[in-house]
């Protein structure tokens, strides 16, 4: 099983991420690219049809957890979020899927440090719509690996 397999199995086991329609597109040594399709039930402003900031937050939080999984690979750990800050740089274009890139830029013995960037699909080189910064706890639970097996 490679990193991408682990990430996909991990997301498949997280009910709310499945409900949000989160997909894993790529998995690197310490980073992932994830995607969330535009869906009517994720709209936050019914007058404009713009995606809710909370759905973007959830995507970023999940992507961060996957970046941790890539960095910890070939081991697997559950990494609950300690804290996370999201800056909404601009409103997302309506009706477009969003892409979240997450990178674990430091893995210490107990804590993982992650940054995230969110774009509209097809505009990965353009202005990001949100950025995030988070820390996660490395919970070394025995048997955590069952989640992805």
């Amino acid at each position: 099983m490679n990193r991408l397999d682990i990430c996909r199995r991990f997301v498949a086991s997280v009910r709310h991420s499945v409900e949000l329609g989160i997909e894993v597109l790529e998995a690197g040594d310490n980073n992932v690219r994830t995607r969330m399709a535009s869906r009517p039930e994720l709209v936050g402003n019914p007058d404009t049809g713009v995606l809710h900031g909370g759905a973007v937050f959830a995507l970023m939080d999940q992507a961060g957890g996957l970046a941790n999984a890539c960095t910890i690979f070939p081991e697997f750990e559950i990494t609950p979020t300690i804290d996370m800050r999201v800056d909404h740089l601009r409103a997302p274009a309506t009706g477009k899927a969003v892409i979240c890139d997450a990178e674990c830029y430091r893995l210490s013995q107990h804590v993982a440090f992650v940054r995230m960037t969110v774009f509209e699909e097809g505009d990965e080189q353009g202005e990001p719509l949100a950025t995030g910064l988070a820390t996660y706890m490395r919970m070394k639970l025995p048997g955590a690996r069952r989640v992805v097996e």
Partner: peptide
């Protein structure tokens, strides 16, 4: 609600669902 669950080993709510709830 089942649909707001996250971590399958605990089971715990998805942090993103809690954050979205608080933002709304």
């Amino acid at each position: 609600r089942d649909t707001n669950l996250g971590n399958p080993t605990l089971p715990a709510l998805h942090g993103g669902a809690v954050a979205g709830f608080m933002e709304q």
